[in-house]
């Protein structure tokens, strides 16, 4: 356990002191802001909406920012073990203080920082734009109040909570690919290739199964599920939103998958030559 904490601390140090996290954070924030701006222009043109358009505008922006962040997370996690294997840092760690499982577990513990950091950047970018263009009151369309401000806020939180576990699973998936690869470039290419393959498989599935696939680790689906559906709900579309069953799947299935994937990554790293 102490080895895991040592790896966690050293990885945290690298993440915070490196430029990557900050550049990705700024980019995610900027992309979320641009997307929110685009959405706000469209919503401002809809004269039937007189109040509360800020909620959906913000979530639209966040959805785009999170999709970009997911790519960055996948690249970062796929690069981590494979890159450190190339540079010799893994060798150094196992000869000094960390067991092989600790190499994976320590890196898994780091996941909340880039995930929450990215979400915060996406939120700030989208919120600042939505706040400057639209209001966050009750959603009123054609003089009819569809949702109160509290209900809108609850929908936003629900969508974010349904997205978080998938991002942790995504990070784990990157670690597994990284544990199996011999080079950082190979690991990133393989992770992105599998990501695209997942996207293609998703397109061939029915809606119901599509949501289950989202609950795994294909992040581009964020647009078509929780974070994609919530803005529609907040704009008063009656057929939008995720059912309770799908939402439950999105909450727990990625966590279970993450555990399985990490166990596989540990098994791989236990056997391989460092």
């Amino acid at each position: 356990m102490t080895g895991t904490l040592r790896i966690f601390r050293s990885e945290l140090d690298r993440l915070i002191c490196g430029f990557g996290l900050w550049i990705v954070g700024l980019t995610v924030g900027a992309v979320a802001a641009i997307s929110a701006l685009k959405s706000s222009i469209e919503l401002a043109g809809d004269l039937s909406i007189t109040s509360g358009a800020g909620w959906s505008c913000m979530l639209e922006g966040m959805g785009t920012g999170v999709a970009l962040m997911a790519f960055a997370l996948l690249i970062a996690s796929a690069r981590s073990l494979a890159g450190d294997h190339e540079s010799g840092l893994l060798r150094m760690a196992v000869t000094r203080s960390a067991s092989r499982p600790a190499l994976v577990l320590g890196r898994l513990l780091v996941a909340p920082l880039p995930i929450l950091g990215g979400l915060l950047a996406a939120f700030l970018g989208a919120w600042l734009v939505a706040r400057s263009q639209l209001d966050f009151g009750p959603f009123v369309q054609d003089k009819f109040e569809h949702m109160t401000a509290e209900e809108s806020l609850a929908e936003v939180c629900k969508a974010l909570f349904a997205t978080l576990p998938a991002l942790v699973a995504l990070w784990s998936f990157g670690l597994l690919i990284s544990a199996c690869s011999r080079s950082a470039v190979g690991a990133v290419a393989l992770a992105l290739g599998l990501f695209v393959a997942f996207d293609l498989v998703k397109e061939s599935l029915s809606d119901e199964h599509l949501y289950l696939i989202f609950a795994s680790f294909a992040p581009s689906l964020a647009d078509s599920s929780a974070l994609g559906e919530a803005p529609k709900v907040l704009q008063g579309f009656s057929d939008a939103g995720l059912g309770d069953f799908v939402l439950r799947q999105a909450m727990w299935l990625p966590g279970a998958q993450a555990l399985l994937i990490v166990a596989l990554a540990v098994a791989v790293i236990q056997r391989r030559t460092l």
């Binding site: 080895g3 040592r6 790896i7 601390r9 050293s10 140090d13 690298r14 150094m92 000094r96 203080s97």
Partner: peptide, 8 residues
């Protein structure tokens, strides 16, 4: 400092 963190 980084190696000291790994070494613990």
């Amino acid at each position: 400092a980084y190696h000291a963190k790994i070494r613990g």
